[in-house]
Write a protein that binds this DNA or RNA. Structure first.
Lengths: 239, 239
DNA sequence: CGCGGTGTTGAGACCTGTCAAGACGTGTGG
DNA sequence: CCACACGTCTTGACAGGTCTCAACACCGCG
């Protein structure tokens, strides 16, 4: 069940047998979360961090008007609130997009890890920094990219991230977001998302239907997005 | 010189005498950086992280068209690329807004810190997570706030952050960004920034001139921005 | 005194949002 | 098995916030 997570780590650095054992020992229990729930609420005191084993979740921030912005999407293998380990409280909600299976990691075990496994600590530190890098790319999208480039960017990013976790088949993947949720990622309205999706289809770059993304022309899609996967830190290096 | 940095840390957790000594020993040398330079370039190999002692810097990402998005502003006391310690390479540039003084911290000293000071490690880890929280708030701004709310949000954030570092006088602070740079923060054009600034002045919320921000009505400004400082993590807690 | 960067203003264009209605699909209860 | 309800998707007409382009003012500096 935590294989996608180990794959994700091992794409970035070596994980020794001892470290793998430590990681496996971090988890205390698993939780099933139905779709469309606010799983972690902003401001709530945290005593454990949550490793997403299966399903999709998102980080969400709201305005009073009810307008919502998703700031990151999470898939199997992602820690959805590892940053909560040091922050103790989140500034955003974590919501489930689909039914999910989640593993709880008590903070005291993470404290123990920082005391006995400095290298593993640095590796997990780097994972939260990679999350920040993803958010930075989204910031660039929202600030400077057009609707179509923003959307292309997101579909490129997800292809790479899902591939790292072993969750794709060629240039195609399961994509469970409604157009409303997609709009909340992209800072658009669902109406405009609908039209932009049609535009991408018309250009024969991508096909989205039946909760599935099929990328028809990856090169062209990346050009539209000005996609450069550097920010996903796929290189294996000592951290 | 590193007092603003210590203030920033101590606003979030206790720092023992031993830890303070360790922190002071991290710095190897200082560097003067003239204004308007690309100080750290995306993709460049990093062997040290940079602590900003004085001046303003920013994280910048570009599109091919030359459009630029600033994803975070840095003031005295901020580590501008502590995340570079674990990432080894940045996905963005770090540019100087003003003349700056920077202290270099070799990564090998940070590695040693992670091996001997787990608590300090967690505290610095939390600092990179707080940077991510700031970026998340900017993402919300760019995705969902109007131009005027975005701008109000930024001025509120800077007031709080500068106050923590001891760099304000009441509701007023030095603000060295041009309208062009402000536009690059807010995902707007400089023309629209100019008009939005006039609107804020017309509403008697804020006055910006001579490189200085004077907040005339903080309550009202915060209401326009829907500003909630929770995301700046000003509580002192064990990390 | 002239230059370059920044700030200011106006007119018009365009991208995206708003509002509204209807189609489609899936799950539920009768 | 049908009827209905509800959420999502789709489409159209129109509105509006922000951008583009352009010109000019301002100001510090060499």
């Amino acid at each position: 069940m935590i294989e996608p997570h180990l794959m994700k780590l091992r794409a970035r650095d070596m994980v020794s047998a001892d470290e793998e054992k430590e990681i496996r020992g971090l988890v205390s229990h698993t939780i099933n979360v139905p779709r469309d729930r606010t799983f972690i609420r902003a401001g709530q005191d945290l005593r454990e961090s949550m490793l997403l084993l299966d399903g999709w979740m998102a980080r969400a921030k709201d305005l009073e008007s009810g307008q919502r912005q998703l700031t990151e999407l999470h898939v199997g293998g992602d820690f959805v609130d590892l940053h909560g380990f040091t922050l103790k409280v989140l500034d955003h909600d974590v919501v489930s997009i689909t039914d999910c299976v989640v593993a709880a990691v008590p903070h005291e075990r993470l404290v123990a890890m920082t005391e006995r496994f400095p290298h593993l600590t640095r590796l997990y530190w780097s994972m939260t920094n990679m999350d920040a890098a993803i958010q930075r790319e989204w910031t660039l999208s929202l600030g400077r990219r057009t609707a179509i480039a923003r959307m292309a960017q997101l579909f490129c990013e997800l292809l790479v991230r899902l591939r790292v976790a072993g969750l794709t088949s060629s240039d195609s993947y399961h994509f469970p977001l409604t157009q409303i949720e997609l709009a909340e990622c992209l800072g658009l309205t669902s109406v405009h998302v609908n039209r932009t999706l049609q535009e991408l289809r018309r250009l024969k770059l991508i096909e989205v239907r039946d909760w599935r993304v099929d990328i028809l022309d990856l090169d062209a899609l990346q050009r539209v997005a000005e996609f450069d996967p550097t920010y996903l830190y796929l290189e294996k290096r000592p951290r």
